[in-house]
Design a protein around this nucleic acid. Sequence first.
DNA 1: GCGAGGTCGTTGTGTGCGCAATCAGAACGC
DNA 2: GCGTTCTGATTGCGCACACAACGACCTCGC
Lengths: 159, 159
Amino acid sequence: MIGDAPELSLLAPTELRAWRGMLRVHAALAKALDQQLEAAHGLQLSSYEVLMYLADAEDERMRMCDLASSILLSRSGLTRLVDRLQREGLLERVACSDDARGAFAKLTPAGRDKLRAARATHLAGVRAMFLDRFSPDELAQLGDAWDRVLDATGWGCCK
Amino acid sequence: MIGDAPELSLLAPTELRAWRGMLRVHAALAKALDQQLEAAHGLQLSSYEVLMYLADAEDERMRMCDLASSILLSRSGLTRLVDRLQREGLLERVACSDDARGAFAKLTPAGRDKLRAARATHLAGVRAMFLDRFSPDELAQLGDAWDRVLDATGWGCCK
DNA sequence: GCGAGGTCGTTGTGTGCGCAATCAGAACGC
DNA sequence: GCGTTCTGATTGCGCACACAACGACCTCGC
């Protein structure tokens, strides 16, 4: 009875299952992956995302505003998140020579090590709980569908 | 460059697209639907969820703890959310005769009217931005896949 | 009865977020 | 050069949440 979903009168059962399923799946995965990462490496999912983008960026550094839009966080939110990670020594702020307003967040060696360990844990979780539940065909189909949805919400490329 | 995703080294492109696609789709839909509801009816998505579950429940009322687990919110979070909705006159607290500890949240006529209007808006949005982007076959397939994922996270029925 | 342990809802506290305002610096017109 | 306007990052503030602790109450064993 707990997980039951209303809206029966206006949504076909198949539609309802597909829609509310996604909401529950997202909530469950976010929580499970976050706890897993926290338990194994004392790292929150949002912090992990920052480190991951930095690690894959040119010279292991990114401008604050690019980082904010990459991880879908407001600029002010990123300021505080980077503050925390800087206090933990996982990244540092570096002034931008081209633009004196700007700042880079740059991975430290400690951050790189932390990420290397965390990434294995995280991706194993994503695989076990999500990717492995789909066939290769389904994954490809899903990728296409997400793009169609993002177009519909006007999130194709920006913001 | 904004929406680019790292993890290239460890995840196949198809996997990456399916995984990060879902994260972005969820974020985009949650934001868009919330803004839509807020603009049209001055109602937040979390408030809408409460009203919706109540409307579809027996006698338009639910126990606080059942409601909390239905909308995936902590008990304390629900206490405050119900506080707000009660102040707005959309629901009322009713004592539970069977169990003196318990309380029901019960829809008021105002809440029922508010929901009737909001539900049309919300479902239209879900349809336009999400459901319409999938074929009937895909929707059915998706529903099955979500169940498999929920099993993998241990959220099959409880919590 | 009645005490131990569990459950329901609320409250205190801390955290993380977005929005709006702010400041410094860049970019542009003239 | 010098104002106007725009942009990047930070800060003040309020909000909504989770967690933990609490009081009230139920339940079960004895």
